[in-house]
């Protein structure tokens, strides 16, 4: 087994709202990210991705559990491992009145890097010509690129990117994804937090899916897709069939030609469930599985399985 770059055990984070309610953001999260490659951190908005990242980086204190980065307990040993970690958390955060170059110079000098390192980082993200413009004049894409340039000041071994393609145009998205892939191929471990399924499927080697602060699945992207199959089901009475299938623990989506059933069960089980209810198939065919179907299945199951969390999360 390869060395784990990120490891959390039973990680918890709860917030107390002003009304006194307890909001559970992360619950007993076990996260394991091996060294090398690009690891997707996938979950819907509000699932606890950013909170987890903020805890790993020492910006937020966990309520319970333990975390390790490069085998070191954090946040206690964070100063020792932070020089190896580049991170963009949520939106880029810089002083709006400083130029892009000034913002990077301050960060580089804080870690004892030469000013020339700033020029290299700016060149890597194609911001050389605009580095003396004020940050507030940057487009969202330029801000994202500057944030990535900031992570490269350290020459990191671990890159944590939280929704790095948010707000970018298609060319910018492609550029960032290529940069991420290149970094992964060069031996940098990248944790890519995203709610864009296609992005994770395209860019990542492995992924962890979370929902409601819990880990739902983790592994290589190919393996994750393989754990679930989607079947197209044709029946004369879709409503009754959907009720029977949901009752049987399958995830059902309606479509024009019938029903799409996301399940880990065999075709025979689907047939039996419907036949026991007096519904007979006109079509049963496998649909090519993708991460989206896995994601939807897992997050829907999580919602059903942890309905009591919903109120707490609101």
């Amino acid at each position: 087994m390869s060395e784990l770059v990120i490891e959390t055990r039973g990680l918890n984070k709860t917030f107390h709202t002003r009304s006194g309610a307890v909001r559970v953001a992360v619950r007993d999260l076990d996260l394991a990210v091996p060294a090398g490659g690009v690891h997707g951190f996938l979950g819907p908005n509000g699932s606890g991705k950013t909170t987890t990242i903020r805890m790993l980086l020492g910006l937020s204190r966990p309520t319970g559990g333990s975390m390790r980065l490069f085998g070191q307990d954090v946040p206690q040993r964070l100063p020792e491992v932070m020089p190896w970690i580049g991170a963009v958390v949520e939106s880029p955060k810089f002083s709006p009145n400083f130029t892009g170059r000034q913002n990077l110079l301050l960060l580089a000098r804080a870690i004892g890097e030469q000013d020339s390192r700033v020029d290299e980082a700016l060149a890597l993200v194609s911001l050389t010509g605009r580095d003396r413009d004020r940050y507030r004049a940057y487009s969202l894409g330029m801000k994202q690129r500057l944030a990535i340039a900031a992570t490269l000041l350290k020459q990191p071994r671990l890159l944590i990117l939280d929704e790095p393609t948010n707000g970018l145009d298609p060319a910018g998205i492609r550029e960032i994804r290529e940069t991420i892939r290149n970094l992964g191929e060069r031996g940098v471990t990248v944790l890519l937090s995203s709610h864009i399924l296609a992005e994770v499927q395209q860019v990542c080697d492995s992924a962890t899916i979370i929902g409601h602060g819990r880990m739902l699945a983790s592994g290589r992207v190919d393996d994750l897709i393989g754990t679930s199959t989607t079947y197209r089901v044709g029946v004369p009475d879709p409503d009754t069939a959907a009720r029977l299938l949901v009752g049987g623990g399958h995830t059902v989506r309606a479509e024009e030609r019938g029903l799409l059933v996301d399940t880990q069960a065999s075709p025979g089980e689907i047939t039996r469930t419907l036949a026991d209810g007096g519904v007979y198939l006109t079509e049963l065919s496998p649909v090519r599985a993708d991460l989206e179907s896995v994601f939807l299945q897992l997050t829907e199951q999580a919602t059903l399985g942890h309905g009591t969390d919903e109120g707490a999360l609101r």
Binding site: L59, M82, G86, V89, K93, F94, P96, L106
Partner: peptide
């Protein structure tokens, strides 16, 4: 200004102490 712009969190990613 550091708080308003959010740049303080960025600074802590470079010096977490």
């Amino acid at each position: 200004h550091d708080w308003n712009s959010g740049s303080l969190s960025n600074q802590l990613l470079f010096e977490p102490r």
